[in-house]
Every structure is written in structure tokens, then in C-alpha cells.
Amino acid sequence: MLVVDLIRHLECFVAVAEESHFGRAATRLNMAQPPLSQRIQRLERELEVRLFDRTSRQVVLTKAGTLLLPEAREVLARAGTLRAAALRIRDGESGLLRAALPPDIAGTTVAALLSEFRANCATVELELHELSTAEQLERFASQGLDVGLVHHPCDVTGLELGPVLRRDLGVLLPRDAPAAQHTEVPLAALAEHDLVLFPRAGSPALYDDLLTTCARGGYTPPAVRHGRGASFVRGLVLSAAAVALAPRDTADDTTPPGLVWRPLAGAPLAWRHSAAWPRGHGDAAVRAFADAAAHALRTTADARPDTPTRPTYLRPAAEYWL
């Protein structure tokens, strides 16, 4: 009986639950109180559970209501995205695509991405934001973003991903450091230098992975110094005879003359990127952005497909087995 109107009834349920008050909920829904009460009663009959305990002054969620509230919110959220997707589909290829890039993408890559996207998706208006991976994930959750380019590892729950691309990391070091003599620097040659790295809180898994791989390659920095902005990091490298990890495309004309960039021997370290979007919402515009981002990274930032090449030996405690 409620199939068609379930969404409307659930909106009433969520409003009453959030306001804890029929009058306030009715105002918020722009309707009178009696029909709101009727809707709640009808929903309770349909679901065969009591959602609220009503006293003369107050409305309180029952245990059942508390359990069903997140489910109701989920259904409403899905209905909202359905409407948004329908709008874009109904309008053909027109509409707005809200997309994001992380701050470490070079200007040339952004330009290549934009021109490729415009060539393939001319009628879609692109609203581009500069957001960190964490910020992008938050926006996906609150439905404020359609597609983005994220750093891995990150929490991919509820997301679909494009193919993962790697940007090999090289090392930025003082021009007069002995290790700068190598055309490709072995990690072990950096042994005497402190390492400048982003603060761990920004991406603990990546931070640990970088340090573990450095150690495995024979480089355990005497000290790790933290820096985020490109100029600050370069300043630390110059003044403290430290080294920093950076992809090739971040070493450009603005690099101070006292610094050089060198690839690392065997390319043991990398940043990994992929396009990401909420599961089930990959329409033509989203895919055009994902393709344009991948193409731009490949052509301007030396990015290449990241196919795992090292073996994986599962151990019994893994509990799964292929």
C-alpha cells in the first residue's frame, strides 16, 4: 500500500525523529499536524512496529524506531541521488558535474584534464574543487561531490574506482650531497640525511608504508621532519641537508638552484591515484572525468598503470585463501 508514497512517509518519520516534536516536524515539512500524525500511524501499521512513544509533551523514538532511523535515512539519501541522476540523464548530457582534485596535482595536469574533458563532454558544466583525499571522502558521504581523484590507500567503502595509476617518487636533495652524483639514487645512499615527510596524521597508512619501504631498502632516516607545503619542504631540504620524496612533475622551474631531483633506483616508492565516485553513480559525465584524469596523469605526470608485480604470500591467519 505504501510503495509509491514510502519516501514521503519516511521523510515524515525522519523529521519527527529529528525534531522529537510533531508540531516542529510539521512546520519543517510545511504541512499541518493532523495529517503528519496520520502518516506516522500509517507507517507504523505498515511496518508493524511502533516507531514513537508519545506523551502529552514529547515524542520519543522507541527501540524499533531507533533501529529503523538509519535505514530510513539511507532510503531517503538513495532517493535523493536517484532524482539528481535522473535530472542529469533527462537533460541529456547537460548539467553540472562536481569534481575534485588533490592539491598535489601539477598545473599542466589540471590543464590537460580540463581540455580533454571539455572535448568529450562539452555540454556538462564542470565545477572543480581542490580537496584532499579525506575531504573528498567526506563530500562523497554527504553527496556533495560526484567524482574525484584520490590518493591510495584510502577508505574505499561504498566507492567505485577507476584503474589505479602510480606516480613514481624520486628524491629532492641538496645539489652538493654525495648521493646527488647518482643518476638513479639507491635508497641506501640517503642514509645520512634526515627525511622531510608530510605529517603522519594526514595519511597514516601511506606514511608507514613509505618509511617501511625506505627501511627495507636500507634507508632509516636519523630523523623525520614534517612539512606539507612545497616551498617549506624545499626550504627544509636546503637548510638542514635533508631529503624529500617527490614525483618528477613537482620538480620544475621553481625548484631552487641549490636543489636537484633524482629518480630512485628501482622505483621502490610511489603515490597511487585513481578516480573514485559513489558506488552506482558512475554516469557518462563521471566516467568522462575519470578517463580525462587518467589520461592527463599519464601524459603530463609520468603516471603508469599500477599492476601488482610482487607475489602475495597469504598466511594462515589471513583466514581467506585463493
Partner: peptide, 22 residues
């Protein structure tokens, strides 16, 4: 299902976030 979704790459393919997401 894990084996099927991982594809021919086997356990090695599970290092790829693209694979884990599916």
C-alpha cells in the same frame, strides 16, 4: 566469490584498490 571477483591475478590482484572496491 573473492576468488571470482579477484580475477585471474589471484591473491596478488588483491593489492589493487580497484579490485578490492569490487
Amino acid at each position: 566469490s573473492v576468488k571470482q571477483d579477484a580475477g585471474p591475478g589471484g591473491a596478488q590482484a588483491l593489492a589493487d584498490p580497484h579490485v578490492v572496491a569490487r
